[in-house]
Computed example of a mutant assay.
Amino acid sequence: MKKKIKLTVWMITISLLIAAVLFVLQQHSFSMTEQKIEIDTPQGQLTGTLVLPESYSGTVGLVVFVHGDGPVNDTYDDGYKPLWEKLASAGYASLSLNKPGIGGSSGNWLEQSMEDRAQETIYAINWAKALPMIDAQAIGLWGASQAGWVIPKIVKKVPDLAFSILVSPAIQWISQGQYNTRQEMILEGFSEKEIKKREDYNAQILLLLKEQASYESYLRIAQSDDLISKEKWGFFSKNYQSDASEDLKNFTTPVHLVLGGQDINVDVEETERIYREKIPKNLLSVFYLPDADHSMLSKKNASSPLRTYLTAVFFPRHIVVEQYLDDLVHFVSQF
Rank of each mutant, 00 (worst) to 15 (best):
Thr121Pro: 05
Phe251Tyr: 15
Ala88His: 01
Phe163Trp: 11
Lys6Glu: 09
Leu110Pro: 11
Leu97Arg: 00
Ser15Pro: 07
Thr75Met: 06
Tyr76Ser: 13
Glu194Leu: 10
Lys197Cys: 04
Asp291Val: 07
Ser168Tyr: 09
Gly107Trp: 11
Ser242Leu: 07
Asp247Leu: 12
Val268Met: 11
Leu110Tyr: 08
Gly44Ser: 01
Leu161Gln: 04
Phe331His: 04
Tyr275Leu: 13
Thr47Lys: 08
Phe236Met: 15
Asp160Gly: 02
Ile264Met: 06
Ser191Ile: 13
Leu206Val: 06
Lys197Val: 09
Lys129Asn: 09
Gln26Pro: 00
Ile228Ser: 03
Glu322Phe: 12
Val9Met: 14
Lys238His: 11
His67Thr: 03
Lys193Pro: 03
Glu85Pro: 06
Gly70Tyr: 13
Ala90Trp: 12
Arg317Lys: 09
Leu25Thr: 10
Ile151Ala: 05
Ser29Ile: 03
Ile39Ala: 09
Phe23Gly: 00
Thr271Gly: 04
Asn180Ile: 02
Glu270Asp: 14
Val60Asp: 05
Tyr240Leu: 06
Ser164Pro: 06
Ala19Arg: 01
Ile134Cys: 02
Trp127Asp: 03
Val9Arg: 00
Leu297His: 13
Ser304His: 11
Tyr215Thr: 02
Gly70Met: 10
Ser145Asn: 05
Glu184Thr: 14
Val286Glu: 01
Met1Lys: 11
Val167Ile: 12
Val158Gln: 15
Asp291Cys: 04
Tyr218Ser: 02
Ala20Gly: 08
Ile279Val: 15
Phe251Ile: 05
Gly177Leu: 06
Gly91Ala: 08
